[in-house]
Structure formats: C-alpha cells, structure tokens
Simulated assay, not measured.
Amino acid sequence: MKHQIREATISDVETIRQLANEIWWDCYAPILEPEQITYMLAEIYSTAKLTEQIKNGTQIYLLLVAEAQPVAFAAFAVREENKEIYKLHKLYCLPAMQGRGFGKALLNAVMQRVKAAGKSILELNVNKYNKAKAVYEKAGFNVIYEEDIPIGPYFMNDFVMRKEL
C-alpha cells in the first residue's frame, strides 16, 4: 500500500488525538486498567499539549498517510538532559493497518532525521508488557534499563531501549 510520511502541523492535532484514542484502547486494554488509559489519553493527548509540542517544536510529529487516510504517527525529540541522544516518544499504528510495514517506515524516518541532525543514539520507552517490545528488538534496539514513570496517580512500568544508529 502506497504511503507518505510528512511532518505534522497544528492542523493535524485532532487527527493525532483520534488516532491515539483508537490505537491506545487496542494496545493497552490488555495490560492497563480502563481508568488509567482514559487518564493518560487525556493527559498526553490533550489538544493544548499536542498543539504546544508541535508549535514549539518540543516534539516533532510525523504522520503516515496511506491511501489519503492517516493511519500512524510518531513523535520524537532531543533529550533535554543529554543533547547527544534523541528519544522516540510515540510510535503508533491503527490496529487494522499493523503488519504492513508502516511502523517500520515511521521508525526509519525518525532514525534518518536523527542521523541528519548529526546524532547517533535513539532511545525509547516501552511498557514491559507491550508486545511492541519484540518489534523494537527486531529493529536493533536493546533494553538498557527499567524505570517506573509516574503519570498522575498511575505508573508506567517501562523498559528503556536504545539503538546506536
């Protein structure tokens, strides 16, 4: 299926919110309580937060469009505490579109942009129970440590993974 990847703009905020809402329930319902998913979607994907991130460039969002329909997105940024490392904050694809190489295409686009910025390390967090961990391992990422991240009254129990580009 033909696709294109483009940088998201403020006009894409609602599209990203809709994609996240559909994807997160499928992705996280097996491992998180519904209250936690609801809270995190509201916290991470608020219109104000996404707009600010895109407007200020604190995260770069990429949108993958296939057959004129947005089906996946990614977000990444340089790490504030270590400017030599980039972090992949988000990489999600609609459940019906998984297995078609869209996630891999987005990941490759992120890695190309990191290299173009003159950097060679990409990190990400993945929930310890998320099946996406295997996808990242296949792409060459390795677990470097574990961390529990508080988000409001909840915790994300994550592996931090890294790849040298």
Rank of each mutant, 00 (worst) to 15 (best):
V143D: 05
W24S: 02
R100V: 02
I44T: 13
F159V: 00
P95A: 10
E137P: 04
R6F: 07
K87T: 07
A117V: 05
I5S: 02
Q18R: 14
A72E: 00
P70H: 03
S120T: 15
N108D: 13
Y61Q: 00
Y136A: 04
A8E: 03
Q4W: 14
E33R: 14
E14V: 10
S46W: 05
G118H: 03
C93E: 06
C27V: 13
I37H: 08
A74V: 02
V13L: 06
K83S: 14
L63H: 12
S46Q: 10
A20M: 09
E146I: 01
T15Y: 02
M97N: 15
N157L: 09
D148V: 14
Y45G: 03
H3M: 10
E147D: 12
N127Y: 06
L107G: 00
E123S: 11
Q18S: 14
M40N: 04
E84W: 08
L124F: 06
Q36W: 03
E52T: 08
N157I: 05
N127K: 09
D148A: 14
L94W: 03
G118I: 00
I16C: 11
I121P: 06
E164K: 13
A109I: 02
E67H: 13
I5E: 00
V135H: 13
R113H: 09
Y129G: 14
Q53G: 05
M97S: 15
K133P: 05
N21V: 01
A116P: 07
G103Y: 01
I60D: 10
I60K: 15
E80M: 04
Y86H: 09
F73N: 05
F159P: 04
V71F: 01
I60S: 14
E84Q: 13
E7W: 00
D12C: 02
Q69T: 14
Q53M: 06
Q69S: 13
Y86R: 10
L62T: 02
W25F: 10
K115E: 15
F159T: 01
D12F: 01
Q18Y: 11
K2W: 10
Q36A: 11
I60E: 12
V65N: 07
A66G: 04
M97F: 13
A72M: 00
K128Y: 12
E14G: 09
Y61F: 14
I37P: 04
R79F: 08
P150G: 09
A68M: 08
L94R: 10
V143Q: 11
E7M: 09
L124M: 08
L62Q: 11
P34S: 04
K138L: 12
